[in-house]
Simulated scan of single mutants.
Amino acid sequence: METVLSITNLTKNFGRLKAVNNLNLQIKRGQVFGMLGPNGSGKTTTLGMLMGVVNPTSGDFSWFNERPTNDVRKKIGAVLEHPIFYPYLSGLKNLELNAMVKQCDPSNIARVLELVELSERKDDKYKTYSLGMKQRLAIASALLNNPTVLILDEPTNGLDPMGIAEIRELIKRIADDGKTIILASHLLDEVQKVCTHFAVLKKGNLVHTGPVDDVGKGEEIVEVIADVQNLNEYLLAFMGTTSVNRENGSFQITMREGFKSKDLNKYLFEKGIIASHLVTKKKSLEKQFLEILSEA
């Protein structure tokens, strides 16, 4: 798979503060790559360096195996901060101005408005748009030059649940169109729902990177409820049990490698126990994220 972005020992110091420290990453074509980390972890500084807004202290990076020249940056669309639009102009007029500044083909405007689902509101003034609509217009502006890569910094920040859902579905549509997306976010659940890969930064250091699908792999945890006395003893006696914990009226069983929930269910059935609730629990990205930070 083609490497879209290669980062080598990228570092940024602000005086004695090391905002980004020897960052090494590779992002492949077609990935939706999430950059996670608490405030001050270096996510926004990293994106700023990648877009030429912030000068690196040391290290290097390349887009499409090329130096980050102006021609290369034309392949990249970005929403790094709150975009500046004219409040008394319509969404359409604002995009026409942006297309003129970016020297983009104005015929792209109708396409991006349709993509972000603003075609019906294109003639309304920008000041009448909701926060979610303003964010979608910003993404439309970033897509005017039909970039290969789209960079989004906290794309759902400040949005209500409906706005978050709209941006999430928009990101999926853009990814389905074959674009590579790099986004920074603190909303772990949203990253788990839209990203294919993620990296975790802590105080400027990369502490983890990998596929989102790997979250929850490893030991399987099964939640069990059954109306039977001494259920705890039966669960401990199962040969596939590593540990048993009582939590909110149910038992949480950590399984040994190679054992699954169906094995536990069969064991209980053979003991004459019918579980009213037996569910495999997948570790959330949030739980893994907190574990990674605590270990770093």
Score class of each variant (00 low, 15 high):
residue 273 I to L: 07
residue 136 R to V: 12
residue 273 I to F: 10
residue 95 L to D: 00
residue 114 E to N: 14
residue 273 I to P: 03
residue 184 A to F: 00
residue 202 K to H: 15
residue 213 D to E: 15
residue 144 L to N: 06
residue 198 F to W: 07
residue 121 R to T: 14
residue 264 L to P: 02
residue 226 A to L: 09
residue 3 T to W: 02
residue 195 C to R: 01
residue 136 R to E: 08
residue 31 Q to E: 15
residue 182 I to K: 05
residue 219 E to P: 03
residue 113 L to S: 02
residue 243 S to T: 15
residue 183 L to F: 10
residue 42 G to E: 04
residue 102 K to L: 15
residue 234 Y to A: 04
residue 116 V to M: 08
residue 77 G to C: 09
residue 60 D to Y: 08
residue 58 S to Y: 03
residue 129 Y to G: 06
residue 116 V to F: 09
residue 148 T to Q: 14
residue 202 K to F: 14
residue 111 R to C: 00
residue 117 E to I: 03
residue 185 S to P: 09
residue 231 L to N: 01
residue 47 L to Y: 05
residue 99 A to I: 10
residue 20 V to K: 02
residue 10 L to I: 05
residue 193 K to A: 13
residue 275 A to T: 11
residue 201 L to V: 10
residue 147 P to G: 07
residue 152 L to S: 04
residue 36 L to E: 11
residue 11 T to D: 09
residue 15 G to P: 07
residue 246 R to I: 14
residue 100 M to S: 11
residue 224 V to K: 07
residue 251 F to K: 01
residue 87 P to N: 08
residue 77 G to L: 07
residue 180 T to E: 10
residue 285 L to A: 07
residue 208 H to S: 08
residue 292 I to W: 06
residue 203 K to T: 11
residue 80 L to I: 15
residue 145 N to W: 02
residue 92 L to A: 05
residue 218 G to P: 01
residue 264 L to N: 06
residue 267 Y to A: 08
residue 71 D to R: 13
residue 284 S to D: 01
residue 105 D to P: 09
residue 105 D to C: 07
residue 246 R to W: 05
residue 152 L to A: 07
residue 89 L to D: 00
residue 161 P to K: 03
residue 162 M to V: 15
residue 181 I to G: 06
residue 161 P to T: 14
residue 230 N to S: 15
residue 294 S to K: 15
residue 40 G to K: 06
residue 276 S to Q: 11
residue 275 A to F: 11
residue 95 L to Y: 02
residue 96 E to V: 06
residue 171 I to C: 06
residue 166 E to F: 04
residue 296 A to D: 12
residue 169 E to R: 14
residue 64 F to T: 03
residue 258 G to E: 10
residue 9 N to V: 02
residue 114 E to L: 00
residue 100 M to K: 11
residue 93 K to C: 01
residue 8 T to N: 12
residue 260 K to R: 15
residue 28 K to L: 12
residue 48 G to K: 14
residue 109 I to C: 03
residue 5 L to R: 08
residue 207 V to Y: 00
residue 286 E to D: 12
residue 25 L to K: 02
residue 21 N to T: 02
residue 139 I to M: 06
residue 284 S to C: 06
residue 121 R to G: 00
residue 252 Q to G: 01
residue 280 T to R: 10
residue 46 T to R: 00
residue 157 N to Q: 15
residue 145 N to L: 04
residue 289 F to R: 03
residue 269 F to P: 02
residue 179 K to W: 01
residue 96 E to M: 12
residue 81 E to V: 07
residue 112 V to C: 06
residue 61 F to N: 05
residue 276 S to Y: 11
residue 35 M to R: 00
residue 274 I to V: 15
residue 94 N to C: 08
residue 166 E to H: 09
residue 92 L to N: 09
residue 30 G to L: 11
residue 249 G to P: 00
residue 218 G to F: 13
residue 95 L to T: 10
residue 287 K to T: 14
residue 254 T to D: 03
residue 276 S to W: 00
residue 102 K to P: 01
residue 119 S to W: 04
residue 155 P to Q: 10
residue 86 Y to W: 14
residue 213 D to L: 09
residue 72 V to A: 01
residue 87 P to L: 08
residue 64 F to C: 02
residue 174 I to K: 05
residue 189 D to T: 13
residue 289 F to D: 04
residue 77 G to N: 09
residue 263 D to Y: 06
residue 196 T to I: 08
residue 288 Q to I: 06
residue 86 Y to K: 03
residue 225 I to A: 05
residue 214 D to R: 04
residue 18 K to F: 02
residue 56 P to Y: 02
residue 143 L to C: 04
